[in-house]
């Protein structure tokens, strides 16, 4: 959980890590302070969490073999093997599924904002 009360896990997404790289460049060039970069990332954590919660319609369903599951420090981790993922409510009405060897799901409690 970040200092702003939102999880930092989206920083590891493509858009998050790209933002981190861009902030690194700005810090290295002396164009921003590290503290501003932290604030930007704090805002990123919040906005991603809020946007995913409020503005997404898409759903995906998946089926596969639940290989591993654990619940540690309020974080659920599931590793699903031989998983077929199906996106609903997308333009791909052909209902194509994506089959992957392994899916890792990390799920945190969205309600407990404010915790550190």
């Amino acid at each position: 959980m970040s200092s702003s009360g939102f999880y930092e896990l989206y920083r590891r997404s493509t858009v998050g890590s790209t933002l981190v790289d861009a902030l690194d460049t700005l810090i290295s060039d002396g164009r921003i302070e590290a503290s501003l970069a932290m604030k930007v990332l704090g805002t990123f954590d919040r906005v991603v969490a809020e946007t995913l919660k409020d503005k997404t319609q898409s759903k995906l369903t998946f089926k596969g073999h639940l290989d591993t599951y654990r619940f540690c420090d309020d974080v659920w981790t599931f590793i699903i093997k031989n998983c077929s993922v199906k996106l609903e409510q997308t333009e791909d009405a052909q209902g194509n599924t994506v089959v992957v060897d392994k899916v890792r799901i990390v799920a945190c409690n969205s309600k407990k904002t404010g915790e550190q």
Partner: peptide
Amino acid sequence: CNGLPPLTGAST
């Protein structure tokens, strides 16, 4: 080496 700060806290 690059003089950059850690931009993540405790990772999940």
